[in-house]
Design a protein around this nucleic acid. Structure first.
Lengths: 124, 124
DNA sequence: AGTTGACCTGGAGTGCACTCCAGGTCGCAG
DNA sequence: CTGCGACCTGGAGTGCACTCCAGGTCAACT
């Protein structure tokens, strides 16, 4: 199993060392294995997991959402935790967001069309 | 021309009174007309404009983006200001965002499918 | 043995976008 | 004319998500 030094994990996830540690403190992932000197050694699994976190963060989920998500994952062995419901809730929120953004995109398109036309003939 | 008291403007734009005043201070819109007692009187135009701001904010533009946008609008009479270019830049950023969100949506779909299946047979 | 550089910790600092507050003014219903 | 409620101001406070920092440890190179 491949492992990664902090700097490499940072590079692969696109997060700073600080952010990686920050996420770990908040228990969004980990615990991360340490070498004899106390330095972090990230596994494939860690890196992949952080990739998921980054993706969901990019999508606009907050830290507390991710914490909930993690919590449910952890307790999954002890029966149903509503994990799927939680995910579905976030999915529908995300869809709303996307809809909003598409709306804004439409507005931007309109504005661009409008002002392009104006600028095109502005020195009348 | 219809006008609106602060409370009504707040209702129509979905922003709090505080936020409305905050946006005005930052010159994202206005200046807003006042009555004899010094109270704000919002016009149709103000409300519509704030609607645009809200839409762009929803879409993830920051306050400083909106300020730039406003600045260019103001100076438009004195020749080309690169307003269209600015809008186009934001549009492409927005498109990236949407793409990211769609990616996240795909990931969520996968997770939901995966954990639904697991939960469905979890009490094995 | 000394220097370098990557890493460690806990905690303080930053930037953003609000949000709240104290203390005050006004116009109108009773 | 007295409340009352909506509004005003400048400025302080909040919550989030990092980001930076001082002071220290350790392994490897020279």
């Amino acid at each position: 199993m491949t492992t990664y030094a902090p700097a490499e994990a940072s590079e692969r996830t696109g997060l700073s060392l600080d952010t990686l540690r920050y996420y770990e403190r908040l228990e969004l992932f980990g615990p991360v294995h340490r070498d004899t000197a106390g330095r972090r050694v990230y596994s494939d699994h860690d890196v992949a997991w952080v990739g998921l976190l980054v993706c969901l963060r990019n999508a606009g989920l907050g830290i507390s959402d991710l914490q909930q998500f993690m919590g449910r994952m952890r307790d999954r062995s002890s029966g149903p935790t509503g994990l799927v419901e939680l995910l579905e809730e976030h999915r529908s929120r995300l869809r709303d967001e996307v809809a909003k953004m598409n709306l804004a995109l439409g507005v931007l398109d309109d504005k661009i069309a409008y002002y392009s036309a104006q600028d095109g003939q502005s020195k009348k």
